[in-house]
Simulated assay, not measured.
Amino acid sequence: MATFLYARVSTSEQTLDHQQSQAEKAGFTFDHVIADHGVSGMSVLMKDRPEGKRLFDMLRAGDTLVVRWVDRLGRNYADVTDTIREFMRRGVVIRTVINSMTFDGATADPIQMAVRDAMIAFMAGTAQAQAEATKDAQKAGIANARDKGNDSYKGRKPSYTREQYTTVADLLRKSDSVSEIAQASGLTRQTVYRIKEDPAAAEKALAAWGL
């Protein structure tokens, strides 16, 4: 039986070290630390993330999976609830650092199961609602800046060139894997994922910067 820490680091303000140290201060020790960097929890399913897929392959009955909170598993309601239920069916115990929640498949009592499932649903729903609220606030801020005549607002400069974007787009149409595309384009897998998730936004970012 092993204890895993899974961390998802989606922004520059988040770090693996912070999530791990917070868990260790709560009394956890780990046999394995697994982290996905720069991957959206909304649009990239747990099984589709490079390290998330690895976690699915490694977990066994009797193992414990620790996460800072359920939003590290993802911010997509259906994905998070499906992931937790899949792990519980395997006999894995899921524990959160925040709120000290424990989810497992040990109980057969229907009332306890209903309470457990309702809590999972509530936490997963909260994670998605928070992500959507943040996204809406960002859109409103951008629109407000433009309404005030701030035409110089461009957002973050793309980490890829027009040539690299074209390469990625062409290879995605050929159904090449993300790893193969990253190698061919010279980009990170996370950047390829971002282009794959929203090619229109990636194109728009290039145009905004005149690239």
Score class of each variant (00 low, 15 high):
T81C: 06
R75L: 05
A207T: 09
R156F: 03
A108K: 10
D198P: 06
G186N: 02
D63V: 12
F103P: 10
K135F: 13
G210S: 09
Y77F: 14
I34W: 02
A200W: 05
N144G: 14
I120H: 02
A207V: 12
D48G: 02
G27F: 06
H37E: 07
R173K: 12
A118V: 11
A207Y: 01
S40F: 03
V9G: 05
V97N: 04
G52F: 13
Q22D: 13
L171D: 09
A208L: 15
A201G: 10
A207D: 11
R72C: 08
K148W: 08
A23G: 04
N144C: 07
D109A: 01
I84W: 03
E180Q: 15
K154W: 05
Y153V: 12
V93H: 01
Q19I: 13
I98S: 10
F103W: 15
Q138C: 02
Q138S: 07
D109Y: 04
R162A: 15
L206Q: 02
Q20N: 01
T3M: 05
M46A: 11
P158I: 07
Q128A: 03
Q164D: 07
Y6A: 03
D36F: 14
G125V: 09
S159L: 06
K196P: 04
K25V: 09
D198E: 05
F56I: 14
V97A: 08
A169Y: 08
E51K: 11
A140E: 00
R156S: 04
D79S: 06
Y77T: 12
T102N: 04
S179W: 07
Q183G: 02
Q183C: 01
R8Q: 04
V39E: 01
L65T: 07
T166R: 10
A182V: 13
G155F: 07
E132H: 10
Q190K: 01
T107N: 07
R189W: 02
L172K: 09
R89S: 14
L59Q: 05
T191N: 05
T126L: 14
K157W: 06
A200N: 11
D176W: 10
N144W: 15
E163M: 06
S10K: 05
L5V: 04
E203Y: 02
A23T: 00
D176K: 11
A106D: 12
L45V: 00
L211Q: 10
F4E: 01
K196F: 12
A143T: 09
I111G: 01
M58S: 06
D79L: 04
K157Y: 09
T126Q: 12
S185A: 15
S21R: 07
L45A: 14
Q19N: 08
Q14N: 09
R54S: 10
M119P: 08
H18E: 10
L45Y: 12
N150L: 01
V39Q: 00
F122Y: 10
V97D: 13
N76T: 04
R60F: 10
G38T: 04
G149H: 01
